[in-house]
Write a protein that binds this DNA or RNA. Structure first.
Lengths: 342, 342
DNA sequence: CTGAAAGCGCTTACAG
DNA sequence: CTGAAAGCGCTTACAG
């Protein structure tokens, strides 16, 4: 592979000039710039990022830590983040904390520390105190997508507000018998949202002076199959069932719809379902939902990182790191309607 | 951050000894080893991978190039690959070729070339000749998951065989009116499988002396929604419809099942569906399928890379790079049954 | 605008 | 088993 020396030799300038010409930093005459560009092209020169990073302290590489990849939300966040980063000429290094504890430890104690990263994005991770300490020790910009890192710049949706809005929708249709399907803590993820979403649900019902039936506050594991089981039981209770259900994720809402159908209920006449997420499949199910656009969240996290990095790769002093609510969108489809008369 | 010099100073040895002690390469006395370990720990030393890579030529970093992330197969491949890599102390750098052409160009012309990678894994990508040339020019081990890179070590499932097995299953149940739903080329992915799977389908029918109805050879875009539309049309044809369907992916099979149900057909009595993939949701749908375990494929790709790298990070001369079929598994559920009498 | 040179933090023959 | 030293390929004050 051609090195910067080869380019310098061919262009008839010093390596310093090659470096300046190629990076665009510092003054270089038009003639030199051109000669360098030509030489570099002829030699197929690509700069060594290890060397560049070592010398400059900038890696053009962002780390992202997720609790799992193979779930809708996370896969879409990654999709948005990689595209945005690759477009800006940055690499993305992916860390997955799922699986055994020692893998997770390896990520925080070793992999993240290797000084190859300019910044780190964490996605809905509930970190232990030592993990947070480690992350801070890197001394690089940090963005927490999905919130949850104290004193760290965060981007997240307003879970309380989303849940109360969804609930208000059901109330406004005339429902009073409304159930809630939240999510349990899985993957060591703080889907802490469950708490906030439950609060929003209860708040909206309270505002409407509707009493919450504690039997109708359920939990599943954020999967379609898990939700299916729970909702099937819910709807089979001979002592009466709700006419509407708010699910803390669309994937769970799909399970709820399947369960209701399998029990012979007609939707939305007998049973209304609203989700939260904006999953593509929602269209096919006719699912009313509140879309949170995770791909765009991934892009926003990258944009925030770039702000924090500034033009030269760092800000001194650092700019304040805001906490930002990401906008969501109410999507009305056919899974919600007024309850059947009677 | 503490550097190797600090550790050397504190341990009372040279940096060379520190390097050897920490890497485990070369002879070091037990005493030195211990002193170094203690000093490193006390200082919270973590080695700079940029420096290490520059000096040694090894990055402990594997690149993986995918055409998209937010689809079941790819998300699961990544899930398997990251876990396996993180466990071995390797970083994974993720490149996504979806989106605009210039992003894709940036990946191949720039990002992959930066000499930060020890090896590259590509996932079901149809590469152009220049792209392939670029990849080869890196001079690093290459593994193609899903096949398709000429003269490159590949790991893939046997699409022909999978499809013919699935078809034989339907035939053995007594079906003769069998349709096939393949996938169109999306994302610039060579889901070239469609061709192989179609071949397998036709072969099996031929063996059973069943004539293929060309009207029943369909194509969708590998999505549930796309399949739903196609199958709805297929089943609504007043001139008769098939009693069974082979779908080239489980996600499409879900759409097929939904379409059949929405038309009032009873499954599997009126209509049998078999998929290919092993998607988790298949259980809920009762979908008979051929599971291909993409997470395990991701792990296998990593294992292959490690073989190619050898203990020291390279093999000289390189070991031969085999082409390997990844095992799949027939999963019988309730979506397939003999056709209703008549 | 340009070049010589120091330095980034490691690894690894080489000599002992 | 150990250390001094060269070298990996860049970047960036510094001096001109």
């Amino acid at each position: 592979m051609a090195s910067i020396k080869d380019v310098a030799l061919r262009a008839g300038v010093s390596v310093a000039t090659v470096s300046r010409a190629l990076s665009g930093k510092g003054k270089v005459s038009a003639a030199s710039r051109e000669a360098v560009a030509r030489a570099a092209k002829e030699l197929g020169y690509v700069l060594s990022y290890n060397a560049s990073s070592l010398a400059s302290g900038r890696s053009r590489n962002i780390g992202i830590v997720v609790p799992t990849i193979s779930r809708w939300y996370f896969a879409n966040v990654l999709q948005g983040a990689t595209q945005e980063l690759n477009e800006r000429g940055y690499d993305l290094t992916l860390y997955n904390t799922s699986g055994e504890q020692r893998h997770r430890d390896a990520v925080f104690q070793d992999l993240l520390m290797r000084q190859r990263l300019d910044a780190v994005i964490t996605v809905t991770l509930k970190l232990t105190a030592p993990e947070l300490h480690q992350l801070r020790a890197i001394g690089k910009p940090l963005v927490a997508l999905g919130g949850l890192l104290p004193e760290v710049s965060t981007i997240r949706v307003d879970d309380f507000n989303i849940a109360s809005l969804a609930t208000e929708h059901l109330v406004s249709l005339g429902h009073t018998k409304i159930a809630f399907l939240g999510g349990a803590d899985v993957f060591n993820v703080d889907f802490n949202l469950p708490a906030a979403r439950l609060d929003g649900f209860e708040y909206a019902l309270d505002q409407a002076e509707i009493t919450v039936n504690p039997q109708w506050l359920l939990d599943a594991d954020f999967t379609t199959a898990g939700a299916y089981q729970k909702v099937r039981s819910l709807l089979s209770n001979p002592r009466g069932r709700p006419t509407a259900l708010l699910c803390a994720s669309d994937e769970m809402a799909f399970g709820a719809i399947m369960a209701a159908r399998d029990l012979g209920l007609s939707l939305p006449g007998d049973f209304s379902v609203i989700g939260i997420d904006g999953h593509e499949l929602g269209e096919l199910y006719g699912l009313t939902t509140i879309a949170q656009h995770p791909g765009a969240q991934g892009e926003a996290a990258v944009a925030r990182i770039m702000e924090l990095l500034g033009e030269d790769g760092y800000r001194d002093p650092p700019i304040p790191a805001p906490d930002q609510f990401f906008p969501t969108e109410f999507v009305l489809r056919t899974s919600t309607a007024p309850p059947a008369a009677g």
